[in-house]
Amino acid sequence: MQLDIRHNETKQRYEAYQGEQLVGHLDYEDLGNAALLTHTEIDPESGGQGYGSELVTGALEGFRQQGKLIVPQCAFVTSFLQKNPEYLELVHPNQRGQLGMEERENR
């Protein structure tokens, strides 16, 4: 079952719902033209089903639609980005080298 990813601007986070049950969230801090991605959490009972990746994908697409760059601080998001370089353009240029992604950008 695909998750419903919702942007909760008030709490500055993206939330993942399965039906009406909240199964995870990705927290961020709004920096104006960028977002600092601070924490991703999936309910332990819902773990191992790919929900984390689905949540991060939905959040990144949301930031793309808003025209925001991202500054990943969360280890899960960093790992996701390293496996999914198609989202590299969303990472703030100053952060790309720190993620070990600079080389991929030029390929």
Score class of each variant (00 low, 15 high):
residue 1 M to Q: 11
residue 1 M to H: 11
residue 2 Q to P: 12
residue 3 L to E: 06
residue 4 D to A: 11
residue 5 I to G: 01
residue 6 R to C: 08
residue 6 R to V: 13
residue 7 H to G: 07
residue 7 H to T: 06
residue 8 N to C: 07
residue 8 N to I: 06
residue 9 E to V: 15
residue 9 E to D: 13
residue 11 K to Y: 09
residue 12 Q to T: 11
residue 14 Y to M: 10
residue 14 Y to W: 15
residue 14 Y to F: 15
residue 15 E to I: 08
residue 15 E to G: 02
residue 15 E to C: 06
residue 19 G to P: 11
residue 19 G to Q: 11
residue 19 G to R: 07
residue 20 E to W: 00
residue 21 Q to C: 08
residue 22 L to Y: 08
residue 23 V to Q: 02
residue 24 G to N: 00
residue 24 G to Y: 01
residue 27 D to Y: 07
residue 27 D to W: 01
residue 28 Y to F: 09
residue 29 E to K: 15
residue 30 D to Y: 05
residue 33 N to G: 08
residue 36 L to I: 05
residue 37 L to C: 08
residue 39 H to A: 08
residue 39 H to D: 10
residue 40 T to I: 03
residue 40 T to G: 09
residue 40 T to W: 01
residue 41 E to N: 06
residue 41 E to M: 12
residue 42 I to R: 01
residue 43 D to M: 10
residue 44 P to Y: 05
residue 45 E to Q: 12
residue 46 S to H: 14
residue 47 G to L: 08
residue 47 G to Q: 12
residue 48 G to P: 04
residue 51 Y to P: 06
residue 52 G to M: 06
residue 52 G to Y: 02
residue 53 S to T: 15
residue 53 S to I: 11
residue 56 V to E: 10
residue 57 T to S: 14
residue 59 A to L: 07
residue 59 A to D: 02
residue 60 L to R: 03
residue 62 G to M: 04
residue 65 Q to V: 12
residue 67 G to T: 13
residue 68 K to H: 03
residue 68 K to F: 02
residue 68 K to M: 00
residue 70 I to V: 02
residue 74 C to K: 00
residue 75 A to N: 15
residue 76 F to W: 02
residue 78 T to P: 10
residue 79 S to D: 14
residue 79 S to I: 14
residue 81 L to Q: 06
residue 81 L to I: 11
residue 82 Q to M: 10
residue 83 K to W: 03
residue 84 N to P: 06
residue 85 P to Q: 09
residue 85 P to R: 10
residue 86 E to R: 15
residue 88 L to E: 13
residue 88 L to Y: 12
residue 89 E to T: 11
residue 89 E to S: 13
residue 90 L to Y: 00
residue 92 H to S: 04
residue 92 H to D: 13
residue 94 N to G: 09
residue 95 Q to P: 07
residue 96 R to S: 04
residue 99 L to W: 08
residue 100 G to V: 15
residue 100 G to Y: 10
residue 103 E to P: 07
residue 104 R to K: 15
residue 104 R to I: 13
residue 106 N to Q: 12
residue 106 N to A: 14
residue 107 R to H: 10
